[in-house]
Design a protein around this nucleic acid. Structure first.
Lengths: 144, 144
DNA sequence: CATGAAAGTGTAGACCC
DNA sequence: GGGTCTACACTTTCATG
């Protein structure tokens, strides 16, 4: 699908506020209401916009700490370990990657004391490497 | 802020479709329109919902490949390397972490051939470790 | 937290370039 | 094909209980 400058502007504005009325969107884009609505629907239909959603503040939800945990299952434990990750709600992201590690995950924590209990069950079946996140200078940028 | 079951349902529904009319939201939650609207605004005011936004499909935007790149600047190159990450639009996530690596980033690519040119400038100032993402079984789960 | 009226918003159809 | 205008239906909001 080809996007012009107005499509890109619509996407950028909706990223900031997905509930912006079509009427206001149309003013900022410089098109009529209906055309703006059409473009919005077209962007969604073509899969550029995969969904309208809300970002949650994990800190406000009681999870002030996050860690990157790399997990390398021991031979034969691939599937079990993947299931264990899925069944621990603290893991909010999980990527399966090539190379030495198998899983790169993001784990959220209520306190540092929660880290050990979460990782302990893994140590029978995998090697883990944990790095506490100090800050996140970049989250979800759109590549230009 | 204390959240009850209805607040949590509102958040869950808005995650699926942030543009859902308050009128329909209220039906599904089992409250009147105004109370539902009030709760929505309260969740946003208290920072639980940090913003209404859209998820973009990076593949549809022409970036079918992603990699996790860990970056360890050589002594004295911390700031330069951070700036280099910020100035390369392919980096869409960047976390500053404790431990051996300093930065854990997510890099999006149009093709595997783009990997080398992006990483080359770093090799003067840092050690990098790249893992191609094969699949992402978990993205942005809400911890329960 | 619910109700009802007023103001605002989205969308379909006809039309134009 | 894409854009605009108009009009009607739906939605949100505010005042009130």
């Amino acid at each position: 699908m080809k996007m012009d400058e107005k499509d890109r502007l619509i996407v950028r504005l909706l990223r900031e506020d997905a509930r912006m009325p079509v009427s206001e969107l149309s003013k900022r884009v410089g098109l009529s209401g209906p055309s703006t609505g059409d473009r919005m629907r077209r962007l969604e239909a073509n899969g550029i916009i995969s969904r309208f959603t809300v970002d949650l503040d994990l800190e406000a939800l009681g999870y002030p700490l996050q860690a990157i945990v790399r997990i390398k299952p021991r031979p034969g434990n691939m599937h079990v370990v993947e299931d264990m990750i899925m069944n621990e709600p603290g893991f909010v992201d999980c990527d399966k990657v090539t190379g030495d590690d198998c899983f790169v995950t993001r784990l959220v924590l209520r306190s540092i004391a929660d880290l050990d209990p979460v990782l302990l069950p893994f140590h029978d079946r995998a090697e883990t490497n944990t790095a506490i996140i100090k800050s996140s200078p970049l989250r979800g940028r759109i590549p230009v």
